[in-house]
Each structure stands twice: as structure tokens, then as C-alpha cells.
């Protein structure tokens, strides 16, 4: 962490216009990237990035942004400071979501139209392997201990457990219909999986790779079919997890120890993806239909602000 802050201060010294924390949001229909200063609560700028940008990630050193421009069939590398393209990765067709490994040297991409997962060596800018998975792979995640990566296929309704050393599928687990997002806990002991159609969150035990708990979301005043869980994040200390409930326009707060839903917070329309602030005191949500980003104060568990960003905000990452 110390190194990260050092880099951050160096950058600050070099570029006085950069604020204390930046939130980057891909805008699927605007073909652009929005940059937000969440402390000031303002949209700083919007830059064009290519056709249909969706998945986004930031390198562990916070220097590079990776953005899947789905209709161009590539992943672009942008310099975080200049937001100029500095490279491209061969992603396979129609890249949507992808995940970086902890070291930041490999990237795992879902190729939704081809039922494939592509493994990319970032330094060599080369495809290492393509793995056939189920129909319409979407959610993808690498365990923090770098042993597993997991791909969820939306139409096959499966979670595929893939060994990072061999890049081979070890096990396929049937989950609730239309699994969307997958996320490992920081200790690599659990995998959290959301099901859009069943309105559930499933907790899988990494050792056995089986489902150990299924949580069905309910919101007073909403019919069950409006509750469609998508993005999921869990805090570093494994105290609480947060699930975006899509067209229910809410984020569920889940106690990660008891798996109880503690609260649901009203955000923007069709809330999609989530990201923590670096200190994990705030949560940022992309709201696809209301075209904004909501900021949740996690200490008080209240929504403090919404910031208009552009058409179809999709992915979100935060740079300290």
C-alpha cells in the first residue's frame, strides 16, 4: 500500500489538476469514458474511447486502464493520467467483462458471442489460451490467491472453475438462472455469485466449489421479477457485501458473516456495477437507465449524491 501512495503523491506532484480520487465510468452508448471527482461530486470530463465500451479495470500500479470496446473486439490500454490510448490487447470477439489477476500480468476475458474465455498475457499482448465454456459467458473473477479463475455463463447457468496454472476447467457447477457477476472474498475462501432471473445471491465455498448458501432478495412494494441482482462486491475485512439489484433500483447490504440482508438502499435506475472507494468508506454505483452514478456513504449507509455521467453507464473503477 505504501508504494501505491508514493506513486500517487508523485503523480500529484507532476500533475496538479489530478484530484484526490478519480472514478472512471464506461458509457456504453456514448462510446466514452466519464471521469468523476467523487469528493467534489462532479463530472470532470468525458473522453471518447471507442465503440461500446463496457468492462473496465485498473492495473495494480494504478497507471493503466483497461477498457473492453466490445464492438471493436479489442481491449484498449489507456494511460490513467492522459487518458490516451497506449496499447491494445487482442481480446477475442465481443469482449464484455474481464478480470485481472492479482499480479496484473494476465487478463481473463469473457467472449460472450463465442462461448469462450480468452487468457491474455498483458506484457506480450498475446492470447495464451482460449477455453470453451457455456453459452454467453459473462461474470469473471480471479481469486486473490491466484489459484482460480471463475467464469459464469448466463445461458448455460453455470459457474466454471478454471485452474490458473493449467487454464483447464476443473469443475462446472449449476447455479440459479442467468448468473451475472462473480466475486471472490479477499481471503479467497468464498465465491459470491448473483442470479439475475432467480433474484438470488449464492455463496460458494472455494474448497468444495459447491453452493453453501442461497439468499433470495425481497424488497417491500416490489414484485419478485423486478429484483434482478447484477454486480457484487465484498469489503476487505469480509464484514459486508453489496449487491446491485438492477431494475429494483436498489443496492442490498448483506452481512457477510450471517448472510442476512441488513438493508436495501435506493439508488438510480437499473443499477448495474459497483466499486468501493480506496478507503472502502464509499460505494459507487453505475445506474444504466437514469444515466448517473450514485455515491453511498457506507459508514452511515445512506446515498449521499447522484452524478449525471452520460448514456448507459456500465463499468466503474476507482483510482486512489
Amino acid at each position: 500500500m505504501k508504494n501505491k501512495y508514493l506513486v500517487f503523491f508523485l503523480i500529484m506532484a507532476l500533475n496538479a489538476t489530478v484530484r484526490a480520487e478519480s472514478v472512471f465510468v464506461t458509457l456504453e452508448k456514448d462510446n466514452a469514458l466519464a471521469v468523476i471527482d467523487p469528493i467534489a461530486g462532479k463530472l470532470i470530463k468525458t473522453v471518447p474511447v471507442g465503440q461500446r465500451p463496457r468492462g473496465i479495470a485498473i492495473s495494480p500500479d494504478n497507471r493503466s486502464l483497461y477498457i473492453a470496446t466490445s464492438d471493436e473486439n479489442i481491449i484498449k490500454i489507456l494511460d490513467v493520467e492522459t487518458l490516451k490510448e497506449v496499447g491494445r490487447l487482442p481480446s477475442g470477439e465481443d469482449p464484455e467483462t474481464f478480470a485481472l489477476n492479482p499480479a496484473g500480468d494476465k487478463l481473463y476475458v469473457s467472449n460472450e458471442d463465442d462461448s469462450l474465455v480468452t487468457v491474455i498475457d498483458i506484457a506480450k499482448k498475446k492470447v495464451v489460451k482460449q477455453i470453451t465454456v457455456g453459452v454467453e459467458p459473462e461474470g469473471i473473477a480471479v481469486s486473490p490467491d491466484n489459484k482460480w479463475f471463475v467464469s459464469a455463463s448466463e445461458t448455460t447457468n453455470m459457474v466454471h472453475w478454471i485452474d490458473t496454472e493449467t487454464n483447464a476447467i476443473v469443475e462446472n457447477i449449476l447455479v440459479d438462472p442467468r448468473p451475472r457477476a462473480v466475486k471472490f472474498t479477499e481471503d479467497s475462501q468464498q465465491l459470491w455469485v448473483t442470479s439475475e432471473m432467480a433474484g438470488t445471491l449464492m455463496i460458494l465455498d472455494v474448497k468444495t466449489r459447491q453452493i453453501i448458501k442461497t439468499i433470495k432478495f425481497q424488497v417491500t412494494g416490489l414484485t419478485a421479477d423486478k429484483i434482478q441482482p447484477v454486480g457484487v462486491v465484498i469489503d476487505k475485512d469480509n464484514n459486508r457485501g453489496y449487491v446491485a439489484l438492477g431494475p429494483a433500483n436498489r443496492v442490498a447490504v448483506i452481512n457477510a458473516k450471517t448472510f442476512e440482508v441488513e438493508k436495501v438502499l435506493l439508488v438510480g435506475q437499473r443499477v448495474w456495477n459497483l466499486a468501493f472507494s480506496p478507503d472502502q468508506k464509499r460505494l459507487y454505483t453505475t445506474n444504466g437507465i437514469s444515466n448517473d452514478v450514485s455515491i453511498i456513504d457506507l459508514e452511515n449507509q445512506v446515498v449521499t449524491k447522484s452524478i449525471g455521467v452520460g448514456s448507459y453507464p456500465w463499468g466503474v473503477v476507482v483510482k486512489p
Binding site: L116, Q130, I131, T132, T166, A168, I169
Partner: peptide, 10 residues
């Protein structure tokens, strides 16, 4: 080719 690229145990 795609099939062979996978481990059969999948």
C-alpha cells in the same frame, strides 16, 4: 481444435 484445446475432464 477448440475441443482438443480443452481438457477432456471438463
Amino acid at each position: 481444435i477448440l475441443g482438443l484445446a480443452n481438457s477432456e475432464s471438463a
